[in-house]
Amino acid sequence: MSNVLGRGEKIFQVIIHIILIFMAACAIIPVWVLVAGSITNEQELILSGYSFIPGSISWDAYKYLFFKAADIVRSYGITVFITVVGTALSLVITPLLAYPLSRKDFKARNVISFIVFFTMLFNGGIVPSYIMWTQIFHIKNTVWALIFPGLLMNGFNVILMKNYFSQNIPVELIEAAKVDGAGEFLIFGKVILPLSLPIMATVGLFVGIGYWNDWTNGLYYVTQPQLYSLQNLLNRILQDVQFLSSSTLAQAAGGAAMTQMPSVSIRMAISVVGILPIMVLYPFFQKYFVKGIAVGAVKG
């Protein structure tokens, strides 16, 4: 790449910077409001609402979370565990399924592609899934309940990968390896995977975020607080607040229970705690995309 930028190139860079800064501002301002809300005095939130700069800073929400530190640390542990294991497993089975589908000479390609695609259109709903996982695989109240149902692999990611393989990996490369006497597994491991870092990083990111943010598995399959993930903890609180505020009966019966609900700033604080690690870790993760560029360059 030449270091001297042309005039057109300069204008282009200025324009994309302006647009990207606008996009970044749109993304960052609301998140800032969230963070500011979590350190605003509860009374100020109710009386004068959210602001960009809190009038009176209060760490009460975080103090409250500190009381619950044991729960939160444990739920972090659960979340990290399921994210790491789930993503790793997913990055094994997803490319293994996607790669043969990208091979034009693979006989069962169309049938299996359809089988994969079909799962994106139809689903049996939560009740049959629940019965399948709890009655046949008995995963209720185990950590596997947070890993296996739903999240491990989905048709979208398989198709995404398949597309990447068929577009970016020259058939000649595979043929050449075959001529050298390499078997299919060797080709997959030594030729395909090294060229697939960008897509592995992309799918890994999506799956990882899926695990990190998931709370439905915890909702349905886990009743022991020892197994609550962070998002599960947060969503239980948020959902109960909503349920109580909309249910006349629950309020009439349990007026006292209403007071147990964590305040707005605590709800904000928990979600800040939930996204913080991703904000911190993502830039490190990002280097795999950059590596992908390097690989592309070598290829050329």
Partner: peptide, 17 residues
């Protein structure tokens, strides 16, 4: 969990739990 109670009990009963 209160917000999910009726749903969860229904699932448990239909699943033979």
């Amino acid at each position: 969990q209160m917000a999910n109670y009726a749903n969860q009990v229904g699932m448990m009963m239909s699943g033979g739990e």
